[in-house]
Design a protein around this nucleic acid. Structure first.
Lengths: 232, 232
DNA sequence: ATTACAGTGTGGTTAGACCACAGTGGTAGG
DNA sequence: CCTACCACTGTGGTCTAACCACACTGTAAT
């Protein structure tokens, strides 16, 4: 077993034993190196991995933001991973769209009314009405969909949707070039968003799920990407 | 921007530009360090991150398995990430079970008959009939469910199911202690697996989806975990 | 009381060295 | 001629020792 994996194992044990909790600080890199009888290099490689996984955040200097502290951001970490794999051309757009439909319609059907995520979703819709350009509109759009998914209260589904956000923004941005009339599409999307949120707040989960599925598939169809599943 | 992030960016560009493809080799660590005018340490940290993401695999020595080569294993990478976050107690079991039901019933309904993954699934069932102990049975069980999910041909859903595999094995192993009679449960599970596979091969997607959902929820219910969604 | 500054500890980065490993190719012995 | 051996080469893996920038902290001078 490689040295940095040993360090990783040690830190993971501290986590599952509860010796390290959310917001807690890891010992300094030099201290860990001495305690585990390894070089600081190996400790650093382990920390780098944890950082990439969204488990810790490293900060220089001293005080509140300094040191290596435990965080919980699986979404952004899974997002970078997906982005890298998309770069290797091994995750087709159609599959991402299909997965979105699956996750989001499920979440829309089970959204808990009154949850903070829905308030955030409503605010995002207001911001989208005055978005200055296409890309900022799409960024808000992606955040709206993530917020909607969070409303179902399943942390795994939330993390997965958050991880898709980056990919969604990218592809949406590329596909807008295929649209005949952005202004018309934009207006339609905004109306659909309002209808979805209304259905959710009205406790009409079934309708919300249908609307979400139609909303997502409608955009990608219009932008020139079919929604039919492709074999890997 | 930190130095290793610069290296990461450079490698990602090589990937999206197609200069680096699946199975391709990265330049040696020393060569990259010189080319980018950074230290070998920084290059190594970047490579370490890519390795954690399942984008590359590092091998010592020379020849076929040597050097740092581009692979595509988002599943195992996402799996480790999820495992770490479970260790921080931020991903409840109930959410994982719920997500399994969602992904697997969807996949069962859309499984493509005749695809290699289904052949593998059938072989796994045969091996489960002669599994020597509980843990190896559960390991095969988890692989069976992943294979089933792959049959739908959506690479994103496949990667997500693969990433859940580790968590599934862990929790299933812990929960078997709650079962009144393992032998009885094991027989039932085997029969249910056969029924699911038969429904899939019979092109009866709807029935397969129902059976899968009942199969997963049944086990966790029997082992003492409710299937009701919990707020985060 | 306020200001300026040296001190301390953090992660970030670098250079240079050595190791184990696995193939390659030359060479000595059969 | 063939075989067995062995030095060579290039890979990632690890380690040491140093320096940097940063941000806070305590102290001393104003």
């Amino acid at each position: 077993m490689r040295t940095h994996e040993l360090v990783l194992q040690w830190i993971e044990k501290q986590l599952s034993d509860g010796d390290l909790t959310l917001g807690g600080r890891l010992p300094g890199e030099r201290a860990m190196a001495e305690q585990l009888q390894v070089s600081r290099t190996s400790v650093r490689e382990a920390v780098r991995i944890l950082e990439a996984m969204g488990v810790v955040r490293a900060g220089v200097g001293s005080g509140k933001d300094a040191g290596t502290v435990v965080i919980a951001e699986p979404g952004s970490a899974l997002g970078s991973t997906l982005r890298l794999h998309v770069a290797t051309r091994h995750l087709p757009v159609a599959d991402i769209v299909e997965t979105r439909v699956l996750l989001e319609s499920w979440a829309a059907e089970r959204a808990h009314v009154g949850v903070p995520a829905l308030t955030e979703a409503a605010e995002l819709l207001d911001q989208m009405d005055v978005a200055p350009d296409i890309d900022s509109f799409l960024a808000l759009d992606a955040r709206f969909h993530v917020a909607l998914a969070q409303a179902a209260g399943n942390s795994v589904v939330s993390a997965m949707m958050a991880s898709l956000r980056g990919a969604i923004e990218n592809y949406a941005s590329e596909l807008t070039g295929n649209l005949p009339d952005w202004n018309a599409t934009c207006s339609r999307l905004r109306a659909e968003h309002r209808a979805i949120l209304a259905a959710v707040n009205n406790n009409d989960g079934g309708k919300a799920a249908e609307l979400v599925a139609a909303h997502i598939q409608g955009f990608y169809k219009e932008a020139g990407v079919g929604s039919s599943p492709l074999p890997t």
